[in-house]
């Protein structure tokens, strides 16, 4: 034991960055982890109720309308929404990368595209909610039948509006955060700071919103 050991690095006693990321980014990750548990709790309670039901409405029957094209088009509108969100996630990555390269112009352009994508998604969701409301669907009211032709409980609409609503609220706050990032970029805040790391944190949040949609989309619209 009395060997000469090279001076031990004390990584966790302060003054060092053991994960080699800045504090804010690490905390954003932990916040997103807790948010994942919130969404997870929602989705698992949805799954539990669905597993305890003898039958459940058919998404191909419920989601079959497209603005301007009428009904009979299953999954078409939600495909559009999904691609809007994927593309806005891509432009967000490009904004983050442009920030790494200190390319202000590219950051601004990609942030604007991301914001447009977010607003487009929210508009789609607003249309879908309105349409479903006019079909008689709302919290506590479910006009759709189960896939086997029996009467459905209101569980389906309750979960649908609660979970897509909670997700839509996340998209909305993401758009607000991105608008703030855009204003800060235009005001040269990050140029003066010398780095665009704040965009990276906003980006993490935005990708998380896209990530949640992957799950919401699958469990409500596909299976």
């Amino acid at each position: 034991m009395a060997q000469a050991v090279p001076a031990e690095q004390k990584w966790w006693s302060g003054g060092k960055s053991p994960f080699n990321v800045e504090y804010g980014k690490l905390m954003m990750w932990y916040f997103l982890m807790s948010d994942a548990f919130t969404f997870g709790a929602f989705l698992i309670s949805y799954g539990t109720i669905r597993f305890s039901s003898n039958s459940w409405p058919d998404p191909n029957e419920v989601f079959q309308s497209f603005p301007g094209l009428g009904s009979g088009l299953p999954l078409m509108f939600v495909s559009l929404m999904t691609f809007i969100l994927i593309i806005s996630s891509v432009t967000m990555v490009l904004a983050v990368q442009a920030g790494h390269a200190m390319d202000k112009k590219a950051v601004v352009r990609n942030l604007i595209l991301t914001i447009i994508g977010g607003i487009a998604f929210l508009s789609c969701q607003a249309w879908e909610w309105t349409h479903m409301f006019h079909e008689g669907a709302w919290w506590g009211s479910n006009p759709f039948l189960n896939i086997d032709g029996t009467k459905a409980s209101t569980n389906f609409t309750n979960f649908f509006f609660t979970i897509t609503g909670f997700h839509g609220f996340h998209v909305f706050s993401g758009v607000i955060i991105n608008i703030i990032m855009l204003i800060m970029t235009l005001n040269d805040v990050f140029e003066r700071r010398g780095h665009y790391l704040m965009i990276e944190k906003a980006g993490l949040y935005w990708h998380f919103v896209d990530l949640v949609w992957v799950f919401v989309f699958t469990v409500f619209y596909l299976v």
Partner: peptide
């Protein structure tokens, strides 16, 4: 419960909710 969950129901027409707005308000069944 089992019997109820196996009874077929009448399929409402697409957009049927629009015609019965009076019922929609606060009707939670």
């Amino acid at each position: 419960h089992y019997e109820q969950s196996k009874t077929k129901a009448e399929k409402p027409a697409h957009g049927a909710g629009e015609t019965k707005d009076a019922k929609k308000e606060g009707s939670v069944e």
